[in-house]
């Protein structure tokens, strides 16, 4: 018998990168299903195009650079799916293919690959797509009238006015918007699953949503403060962003305190961008901005040294 001599520990937990990625995909399914139910088959096709093109870009990159084929780690699948969730169902397919290529090749692979990228690939791609073909990114279906496009609830809130939809309709997703963002309930369900599976902690989503809730409650722009807060939480990409985008491992802080500060920062920037920005939505740019600050947050929120009491001199 040959005995292996290796460093401890001799047992490992059952966490795995690809298991985590599959959990994220699974957690996104309810929201995706709502998108397809409300917006129809084109939502499904956009998702397919985004996922397949992401996988193809990932494969091509490993082929051209002769590096390890990383399709199995599942991250390209997640990027493709997340990108699709942020897009309107009417987006042109060619734009999706360009976007996914940018996400996979430029934002992820060229920045060092899995775990090394500074910016969220899906959101970076969305930002680029907004830049190169805005017209393809702002037409949204109206769920009540098939094939008609119209303004999202957020467009009303810019006026400022409360949207036509009831809060309940917004929560379940009977409103227009990007194909994965409309149903807050489905997204929260997915988030609860991720917390249960210990894929994410509550720190970032709770800090993010909590901050938005507090600011919109104190500074409402229409209706009564509670109503305004409710609409602010359920509209646009906030739930999708707070639960699935801001919690992206590679582009968020690793320290517990850093994660809370990061969530608060995302919340403040989102409200500021929604109130004063050029576009009705601010989630994408809020998260991308905070992505750039992650290294500072990590550096200055290192855990207190064991044995060093709070308020003691830093070593």
């Amino acid at each position: 018998m040959k005995l292996t001599v290796a460093s401890s520990p001799h047992i490992r937990g059952n966490f795995r990168t690809n298991r985590i990625m599959l959990d994220v995909v699974f957690a996104l399914l309810p929201a995706l299903a709502m998108g397809i139910v409300v917006m129809g088959s084109r939502a499904f096709l956009v998702t397919c195009v985004s996922i397949v093109s992401s996988l193809v870009w990932e494969y091509l990159y490993s082929l051209v650079t002769r590096t390890r084929n990383t399709l199995k780690d599942g991250s390209a699948l997640v990027t493709g799916l997340l990108l699709a969730m942020t897009l309107p169902a009417s987006v042109p397919y060619w734009l999706v293919i360009i976007g996914s290529g940018f996400a996979i090749i430029v934002v992820k692979a060229l920045c060092g690959g899995l775990g090394q990228n500074i910016f969220n690939p899906a959101l970076s791609a969305r930002a680029l797509m907004m830049l190169i073909y805005p017209a393809g990114m702002v037409r949204f279906f109206v769920p009540k009238a098939d094939g008609v496009t119209a303004a999202t609830p957020l467009h009303h809130m810019v006026m400022p006015a409360l949207p036509e939809e009831t809060l309940w309709e917004m929560a379940i997703g009977r409103c227009s918007g990007s194909l994965g963002e409309i149903s807050a309930v489905a997204l929260l369900l997915g988030g609860a699953y991720l917390v249960y599976r210990k894929v994410i902690s509550l720190r970032i989503p709770a800090a993010y949503l909590g901050t938005v809730a507090v600011i919109t409650l104190i500074f409402p722009k229409a209706g009564n403060p509670l109503q305004w807060m409710g609409y602010s939480l359920f509209s646009g990409g906030l739930m999708l962003g707070a639960i699935f985008m801001a919690t992206d491992y590679a582009t968020s802080p690793v320290t517990p305190l850093g994660q809370i500060l990061y969530g608060i920062g995302c919340g403040i920037l989102t409200v500021l961008l929604r109130y004063y920005g050029l576009y009705p939505e601010g989630v994408t740019y809020a998260i991308l901005t905070m992505n750039a600050l992650v290294w500072i947050l990590d550096r200055y929120t290192a855990p207190r040294r064991f044995g060093k009491q709070k308020g003691g001199a830093a070593s």
């Binding site: 966490f15 990168t17 985590i20 199995k72 690959g113 775990g115 590679a250 320290t255 855990p303 040294r305």
Partner: peptide
Amino acid sequence: ENPVCIRCGKCISACPMHLQ
């Protein structure tokens, strides 16, 4: 499958000595 750090931060949350 792909042994590279994905920056999940689980090691920091698991370290009883507050290390990174």
